[in-house]
């Protein structure tokens, strides 16, 4: 397995004028291909901050971050945008779909910034929507979809570029348990297909789906435990990766 992410002693500080907030203090982390990691911790512990840094939306104040062997800390805004576009798929708690665009266009978006031609874009976006079970909803706008369906559109958008990792920040936080399960089922499937997934969550049952649980507290890694969790059948792997 090859190393996707290598983090060494990163910190993130917010200068609030009167005081400095240490969102992350000293975090080191290695992440391999096809890992499924859950990041857990109390509110305010720095989970989202870490997630944003991992996703190249934000940069650490100090420390080293290498993505596929590239030093992220040395990248300019355009290079970061390129990494986000090609290598990272985000899934947010609040879905973050464009309200005025239909499901298909929402999923197409990252491909536009990747310079994929219109025909190819439509084809791939449709495939991604079919993969998340929304092949019959492609012309629906977000407000014409249920919460669970919206999050599935977001998952389709995250995987349409075939990124190196999928980052999900509390993806089930706004969903009922049934819809949440559907999303977790999707993640399991994606993981079986060889995708790398990082999920931030509060809920233990979400973490149970993962193979590695990273607990952080006050900006520090409290524990990093690998679990051999083989509940999910791997039978679909061959079928979907072909």
């Amino acid at each position: 397995m090859s190393n996707i992410i290598k983090i060494r002693n990163i910190s993130k500080e917010y200068n609030m004028g009167v005081e400095i907030v240490h969102a992350l203090r000293d975090v080191s982390l290695d992440l391999d291909k096809n890992e499924y990691v859950a990041i857990m911790g109390p509110s305010g512990s720095g989970k989202s901050t870490l997630m944003n840094i991992l996703g190249c939306l934000d940069t650490p104040t100090t420390g080293l971050y290498e993505f596929n062997g590239l030093n992220v800390g040395k990248m300019n805004d355009n290079e970061l945008a390129r990494i986000r576009n090609k290598e990272i798929g985000f899934v947010f708690q609040t879905f973050n779909l464009l309200a005025r665009s239909d499901a298909l266009h929402n999923v197409e978006l990252p491909l536009i910034y990747a310079g994929v031609s219109s025909g190819e874009r439509k084809k791939r976006a449709k495939e991604a929507l079919e993969q998340v079970g929304l092949g019959d909803r492609i012309t629906h706008k977000p407000n014409e979809l249920s919460g669970g369906q919206r999050q599935r559109v977001a998952v389709a958008r995250a995987l349409v570029t075939r990124p190196s990792i999928i980052l999900a920040d509390e993806p089930t936080g706004n969903l009922d348990s049934k819809s949440g399960d559907e999303i977790l089922g999707l993640f399991a499937e994606l993981h079986d297909q060889g995708n790398t997934i990082i999920v931030v969550t509060h809920e233990e049952y979400v973490a149970e789906h993962s193979r590695r649980i990273l607990r952080i507290k006050d900006g520090l890694v409290e524990s990093d435990i690998r679990v051999d969790n083989s509940r999910i059948p791997n039978g679909v792997r061959e079928e979907l990766t072909s």
Partner: peptide, 16 residues
């Protein structure tokens, strides 16, 4: 603003 954030998170460069 939110839309800008979403587009950027999906890899839209500043010039776009």
């Amino acid at each position: 603003t939110k839309e800008i954030g979403i587009r950027k998170s999906l890899g839209a460069p500043g010039r776009s």
